[in-house]
């Protein structure tokens, strides 16, 4: 699905990724974890082609992504902070993205699911953080792509929406899709993910299931296992 080889990226003198090798197979939910500044978002943005790597190759669905843009038809991406053009109405934004990516009818169902009807005619600049995140989710899930990338999907969501999000993720997984998630909410990660990838100082420190991580660190629960990695490495 996604194949990354020897990925290097630095911003000026700040080395963010130094030799990441990652092979993500088809189907399942993968969580990308790591402390702040460990390169999670940079890794995701490299897959999306928003960040240009200094070195290394990335293949998405067997296609080298360098200088290509068409492969993004096969990716649904949820950006970290919902930064939308402020003077656009919710309705207009949805219409615009549909115009750019192709038509879909899923948006109606998703708007219903997140009860966004009252906000359709409001400008994005006037929405609360949580509502913006819901709009963000609608934009991401309304297309039927084999790869879904979610950067901090839970930010700002109320408990009901969170439950709906989890359901949504599980339905997509049942369709055989591959889902990449980053999150700092460990309970959320533990609940949804099949496999975790732990980034530390620009490299992959651990990759495997949650139970393997618990065994490796000799910790009874997931949150402590993560914490022990961080304290051991002074991160």
């Amino acid at each position: 699905m996604v194949n990354i080889e020897n990925l290097h990226k630095r911003f000026n003198k700040n080395i963010v990724l130094s030799g990441v090798d990652l092979n993500i197979t088809e189907g399942g939910i993968f969580a990308i974890l790591g402390p702040n500044g460990s390169g999670k978002t940079t890794l995701i943005k490299s897959i999306l082609g928003m960040v240009i790597p200094n070195k290394g190759t990335i293949n998405v669905l067997g296609e080298n992504i360098k200088n290509s843009s068409n492969y993004r038809h096969k990716i649904d991406y949820l950006p970290q902070i919902a930064n939308f053009p402020n003077n656009l109405k919710v309705k207009e934004l949805i219409k615009m993205i549909k115009d750019l990516r192709g038509d879909t009818n899923e948006d109606e169902r998703l708007i219903e699911l997140f009860t966004l009807h009252p906000f359709l005619d409001k400008k994005l600049g006037n929405l609360s953080g949580g509502t913006k995140q819901k709009v963000n989710l609608v934009l991401t899930f309304m297309f039927d792509s084999p790869l879904i990338i979610l950067d901090e999907p839970t930010t700002g969501l109320d408990p009901i929406s969170l439950i709906r999000l989890k359901d949504l993720i599980q339905t997509e997984k049942a369709k055989g899709k591959t889902i990449l998630i980053t999150s700092h909410i460990m309970s959320f990660v533990e609940e949804v993910s099949d496999e975790i990838v732990f980034l530390l100082e620009g490299q992959i420190y651990f990759r495997g299931s949650i139970s393997e991580l618990k065994n490796k660190t000799n910790q009874p629960d997931f949150e402590h296992a993560i914490a022990s990695i961080l304290t051991e490495n002074n991160a």
């Binding site: 928003m50 843009s69 993004r72 930064n83 939308f84 402020n86 993205i97 750019l100 990516r101």
Partner: peptide, 16 residues
């Protein structure tokens, strides 16, 4: 001012 808009577009299947 349209930085947000640009970032939104960059994640879409569009050429830079």
């Amino acid at each position: 001012n349209s930085k947000e808009f640009t970032e939104l577009l960059l994640a879409q299947p569009l050429k830079r």
